[in-house]
Computed example of a mutant assay.
Amino acid sequence: MIDIETHSENETVALGIVIGKMLAAGDVLALKGNLGAGKTHFVKGIARGMGIEENVVSPTFTILNYYEHTIPLLHFDFYRLEEEYELDDLGFDDYITNGITVIEWAEKFPDRLPSHAAIISIEKSSSMDRIFHMEFNDDKWIHIEKEVKRYVTSR
């Protein structure tokens, strides 16, 4: 596990950029955190790191925002979902194999997350400060974990 602090929206986006540059098709990031924790700002950074120019917004009401790119970004938000069958109605399992998937409010349906998903819990420690608790549970994340550690020590 890695813990990283950010002290502004810009730093949260910058952390996302570092990670977004290294993601590959099939990667899944499960984001956990209260309202206002910075999940969407983090996803904005991931998209920028991937080279996506579009404005990234929270898919709270649409459940999924799909950003077309060389490798597409699938940005899910489970906040408004009540029952697990709703994921089946969306075709969730089919989507997560077709690009890079980032899920906000992933804690709502933890049993539906693939075993290789990176788990990122975001804790709001003050109005601007955030602590990112990152768990990389699979060997596929070793290079990203090393790069994130390097980024933290270089700031």
Score class of each variant (00 low, 15 high):
124 K>Q: 15
99 G>N: 00
149 K>M: 10
37 A>D: 04
7 H>G: 04
60 T>P: 10
132 F>Y: 15
35 L>I: 15
149 K>F: 09
24 A>Y: 13
85 Y>L: 13
102 V>H: 06
16 G>T: 10
23 L>W: 13
40 T>R: 04
72 P>E: 14
87 L>M: 09
141 W>A: 04
135 E>N: 11
133 H>C: 09
154 S>W: 07
126 S>C: 01
52 I>V: 04
47 A>V: 12
141 W>M: 09
99 G>P: 13
93 D>Q: 14
91 G>R: 14
129 D>V: 04
28 V>R: 14
9 E>M: 03
97 T>N: 10
49 G>K: 05
106 A>Q: 03
147 E>C: 04
132 F>E: 15
3 D>W: 07
37 A>R: 11
62 T>I: 06
11 E>L: 01
94 D>A: 11
67 Y>W: 13
12 T>D: 11
152 V>F: 12
119 I>S: 05
45 G>P: 10
105 W>T: 15
31 L>P: 06
88 D>Y: 10
122 I>L: 03
98 N>Q: 15
13 V>Q: 09
26 G>F: 14
53 E>A: 10
39 K>Y: 00
36 G>P: 00
41 H>P: 00
72 P>G: 08
13 V>N: 03
89 D>C: 12
59 P>K: 11
75 H>Q: 13
141 W>L: 06
133 H>N: 12
104 E>T: 13
24 A>R: 08
114 P>W: 06
26 G>E: 06
136 F>M: 12
89 D>T: 12
32 K>Q: 08
64 L>T: 00
127 S>T: 15
56 V>K: 13
148 V>L: 03
45 G>S: 04
32 K>I: 05
6 T>L: 01
108 K>D: 02
124 K>Y: 02
101 T>D: 11
65 N>S: 12
123 E>P: 07
131 I>G: 04
117 A>E: 14
119 I>W: 00
8 S>Q: 06
4 I>H: 09
143 H>W: 01
25 A>E: 12
45 G>F: 00
13 V>D: 04
20 G>P: 03
50 M>L: 15
101 T>Y: 15
88 D>K: 08
13 V>S: 05
65 N>G: 03
104 E>R: 10
36 G>Y: 08
86 E>L: 00
130 R>E: 07
151 Y>G: 05
45 G>T: 05
70 T>L: 04
129 D>T: 12
95 Y>R: 07
88 D>C: 01
28 V>F: 15
152 V>S: 01
100 I>N: 06
76 F>A: 01
2 I>Y: 11
79 Y>H: 10
54 E>G: 04
108 K>R: 13
16 G>C: 05
64 L>D: 09
110 P>A: 02
27 D>A: 05
42 F>T: 08
41 H>S: 14
139 D>C: 00
75 H>F: 07
81 L>M: 09
147 E>M: 07
53 E>Q: 11
46 I>H: 05
91 G>Q: 15
100 I>C: 07
142 I>A: 06
31 L>M: 02
139 D>P: 08
15 L>W: 00
144 I>A: 03
41 H>N: 13
